[in-house]
């Protein structure tokens, strides 16, 4: 990675992200890769707050705050207008949370991707609606406590597989990435930048506040998510060509769950079941990548 990319800093200090917030780390990485000539569309999410209250902005690029569900569409308009002005150089980036991507903004995203709008959509995934105080989303994983899945009603449904949903659109580029793997993340963001059409990055971004973990653990946990196959690192080109970027050492998911307050109610039996789900998903991915097990 060229040092000017690494050293480039487009996020100001003084923002109000929680200590140890993974979403802010993700933002720093992505903007390093994309550079100043980027316009950001920012639907409602934690980052709407982190980005700074009027008249402050935590970002050194132009930002258009947007309605929660409009990430894909607003970017469509920004891109169209830039094209009309003859500016094909500026990258249009939508930066949305999992709620704004998997749930309320899914239609808008799907529409934009179907049209192959020329932009990058980043979903930083903290697995719940954090801005509004940790409510479940369709990205919340099986087993998690949230403020709307409490007590014995912890979430008993699987997390939506957003990348596969986008792959079904035959999107030119879709990739997962993690804040714990900066090189991989920066590479993918740069790769996306140098492509045309719709590009999607699904970035795992731990949330100390919502996950009930100590702030200093947010990278460690993000790394474990990859190491345990809970969040595999892979990329898909043209909706067809899968590349798995990281070969986990087959750590047990148990270790990952044990570290987080949001999973503390889970029994050994639950964890066994989750391990099975994770294995199943991983095998499915291997099959898609043409690597039969």
């Amino acid at each position: 990675m060229p040092t000017d990319v690494l050293d480039r800093e487009l996020v100001h200090s003084g923002h109000v992200g929680c200590p140890g917030c993974g979403a802010t780390i993700a933002m720093r990485f992505v903007l390093k890769a994309l550079g100043e000539k980027t316009i950001m569309v920012l639907p409602a999410c934690c980052w709407s707050v982190i980005a700074g209250p009027y008249p402050q902005s935590a970002l050194k690029i132009p930002v258009l705050h947007a309605a929660f569900e409009t990430g894909g569409a607003t970017a469509t308009g920004v891109r169209a207008a830039l094209d009309m002005k003859g500016d094909t150089e500026t990258t249009v980036l939508t930066w949305a949370g999992d709620g704004g991507t998997f749930d309320i903004g899914f239609q808008s995203l799907s529409g934009a991707v179907e049209r192959d709008e020329n932009f990058i959509y980043v979903c930083y995934d903290n697995e719940a609606y954090m801005n509004t105080g940790v409510q479940r989303s369709s990205s919340t994983p099986y087993g998690a406590w949230t403020t709307t899945t409490t007590g014995k009603d912890w979430k008993k449904l699987r997390k939506k597989n957003i990348v596969e949903a986008l792959v079904a659109h035959r999107i030119p580029y879709a990739a997962t990435a993690s804040i714990a793997f900066p090189e991989d993340l920066l590479r993918k963001a740069q790769k996306a930048k140098n492509m045309k059409g719709s590009r999607f990055l699904h970035i795992y971004a731990s949330c100390p506040t919502g996950w009930r973990i100590p702030s200093e653990m947010s990278i460690k946990i993000a790394r474990m998510a990859v190491q345990t196959n809970i969040f595999p690192l892979y990329e898909v080109e043209e909706g067809l060509r899968y590349t798995i970027n990281y070969r986990p050492k087959e750590y047990l998911v148990r270790e990952y769950f044990r570290l987080q307050g949001r999973f503390k109610h889970l029994t050994e039996k639950d964890l066994d079941q989750i391990q099975q789900m994770v294995n199943e998903d991983w095998e499915l991915l291997l099959r898609k990548a043409g690597e039969h097990v």
């Binding site: 316009i39 469509t76 934009a112």
Partner: peptide, 17 residues
Amino acid sequence: VESEHSCMAALIGAQSV
């Protein structure tokens, strides 16, 4: 676009440029 909602969102984006 795929809906009126997205239609207005897109115009908000375009007009902002």
